[in-house]
């Protein structure tokens, strides 16, 4: 059974600046990293592999240099890494991206039963949180978003029960496999690669699938298949701060107020 982690190479956004004149991202010289939420997806695919004997595959759509991201996945131990790369995939929005990823997953599922597709809840560059659900819709998978815990996985009955982290509450849901899960940070602590694995990952073959293999209609992928247009990028103004309570004379009471405030904004989990 397959556990597929969809991971994306993203620019390290803490280092990205916006060109004030052209309103575009200055990406020159910015290092690429694995989208942090995707590292939790990757980790969970490895955990279900270890616990339930699934086969873990890392998938990424991106330019040829995204191979580096897949090598990182190899360094933490995936069984197979596949790069979906073709000139015609370039400039894709979330719709076109989920088309390509879905096609690749479908192709993998021809040979082996599909169990779980893991995606990060969103990427730190686009922040749309649409690709995971897009894949689920296209493939007709149950979609379990914002999962912070896998409660139970029944390989006999082929069902899964997970906990979703919602604003101020949790929701426990159960679904039949195969499912698509999007992961939040609390789900797990990604492992650190060992040196022997890192060295081995340098030698591993990362397969590249282009559109000759996937055979998608060129109108449904890349820029052509993307109905989204970016009109403007800008840094939003910062909200005004606010002072609550009287921290000098009543530190405990003020701490309480601060905790309430953070809870109400879902910045703090109980």
């Amino acid at each position: 059974m397959l556990a597929i982690a969809c991971i994306k190479q993203v620019p390290d956004t803490t280092q990205v600046q916006i060109d004030p004149e052209t309103n575009t991202l200055v990406l020159e010289g910015i290092p690429f990293i694995v989208n942090p939420y995707d590292t939790h997806a990757l980790e969970e695919s490895l955990r279900v592999r270890e616990t339930f004997g699934m086969r873990a595959i890392a998938l990424s759509m991106g330019p040829p240099n995204a191979e580096a991201t897949l090598r990182k996945a190899c360094a933490v131990g995936v069984d197979e890494a596949i790069l979906l790369s073709d000139r015609c995939f370039g400039g894709a929005d979330t719709l076109a991206t989920s088309n390509v990823l879905s096609a690749a997953i479908e192709r993998l599922a021809q040979d082996e039963e599909l169990g779980i597709v893991f995606c990060g809840k969103q990427t730190i560059d686009g922040d749309t949180a649409q690709v995971g659900p897009g894949i689920a819709s296209r493939l007709g998978l149950q979609q379990l978003t914002l999962v912070d815990k896998i409660d139970h996985l029944d390989m006999e009955q082929k069902t899964i029960r997970v906990r979703r982290k919602l604003e101020g509450r949790h929701e426990i849901v159960e679904a039949p496999l195969p499912v698509m899960i999007t992961t939040v940070r609390e789900l797990n602590r990604p492992r650190y690669p060992t040196v022997p694995m890192r060295l081995a990952a340098q030698e591993v073959e990362v397969k590249t699938w282009d559109n000759n293999i996937l055979g998608l209609d060129p109108e449904t992928v890349g820029l052509k298949g993307s109905p989204t247009w970016v009109c403007k990028i800008f840094s939003p103004d910062r909200d005004q701060g606010e002072i609550i309570g009287d921290g000098v004379n009543d530190p405990e009471g003020t701490a309480g107020l601060l905790i309430d405030k953070l809870l109400s904004k879902d910045l703090l989990a109980v």
Binding site: P31, R189, R191, Y192, T194, V195
Partner: peptide, 20 residues
Amino acid sequence: QERARFPEELLNLFENTEQR
């Protein structure tokens, strides 16, 4: 390096130093 086993607060240090 062989076991990736260390006090958990070091994970951030290792990743930050490697990435940034």
